[in-house]
Design a protein around this nucleic acid. Sequence first.
DNA 1: ATAAATATTGAGCAATGCTCATTTTGTGAT
DNA 2: ATCACAAAATGAGCATTGCTCAATATTTAT
Lengths: 202, 202
Amino acid sequence: MSKALERRAKLREALIEAAERAIAAKGLSGLKTRELAQEIGIANGGVYNLVEDVDELILRVGSRTLARLDASLSLAEIRGAAAPREMLVRIAVAYCDFAADNLELWRALFEHRMQPGKPVPEWAISEQMELFRHIYKPLAALFPQRSPAQLGVTARSLFSAVHGMVALGLEHKLIAVPIGALRSEISTLTRAMVDGLTAKKE
Amino acid sequence: MSKALERRAKLREALIEAAERAIAAKGLSGLKTRELAQEIGIANGGVYNLVEDVDELILRVGSRTLARLDASLSLAEIRGAAAPREMLVRIAVAYCDFAADNLELWRALFEHRMQPGKPVPEWAISEQMELFRHIYKPLAALFPQRSPAQLGVTARSLFSAVHGMVALGLEHKLIAVPIGALRSEISTLTRAMVDGLTAKKE
DNA sequence: ATAAATATTGAGCAATGCTCATTTTGTGAT
DNA sequence: ATCACAAAATGAGCATTGCTCAATATTTAT
């Protein structure tokens, strides 16, 4: 690989990391291309030699965030075996903890909108889908009679519900719920959802 | 009231309505003060005689949206009596329908962030809180032994969970779920949550 | 009618994403 | 090493926006 290309790759990494720090510190709206350029020592316009768009830049940062989130959830699963029900609770709480510990980066995942007309690239969508994977396995154990498609639907519903609790719970706009309280609400409701879905209809 | 003040009030109304139309048509990011000014026939700078900020403008639009949402939920409650469990399902589905029918305005409620430093005004926060009111009454019927504070927590959790399902379900970024499927997923999970919370611990 | 108060205007500022002609740097052949 | 060509970096500049404010026009009070 030529020296020029190596340099480009290094700069690209530096740019993405600088963007990640900026979002973590000041939120999505605190991301300024000029500041990033200055931080990594290139000209203003140079940003667009490394990246197509700010959209792409944000998506790249999102990719890293998703990877770390994925790792956090995996870690939660590995730490000791548990019955499927408690495994789901553990994953939900791990999701909550990750969001709390990475608030702005986690928010950027959901707040970002592409500039009008540009669709979200396929790779970014499939990365998000991968998240459901974590819920899928315990769910399959709990509902052995359900088809993969049905399990997929249930997984998405469960994930969405927990996501909603985390999103509104961490919102400063509404009353900020203490993290401990949020964790226990999430545990309670996750168990309730599992129990309610498991219960035989009468 | 002087002629000048009447005029101001009329213009203010017109401004808020123009902003509402703009958001409904093009989303929060499609809101442009210059366009609004032109639409209601005042100078660019005139917008700031009618309203402090775009923040305030968006909050005013949000207030109207919340009022309509509140009316929709109330209507869902009134249409025939039902057991508390089914009442909660009905409210959840009504929430989903409102969001689908007022997508951009509903999104603006949650996507908007105040400009750095400005806190959300008290009146806007309490308007949001009023939403939980709808869930509170059926919940109180289901859990007569719980304290008002406990009921409040449960109401927020339930609301958040349904909100999450609607938010991710209507996201175009992920696979857009057909509205009918979303409604039935919401019904299923709402019943599951209620059942799970109701079930005696064993 | 006239002066004082008030409201409206729109040019202009600052911030920001992005472009592109110009300049600088890197590459490869002789 | 030298030169010619390709590739990359630069930064001035454009377009868009929210917002300001001195100047102007309008309303109100006497």
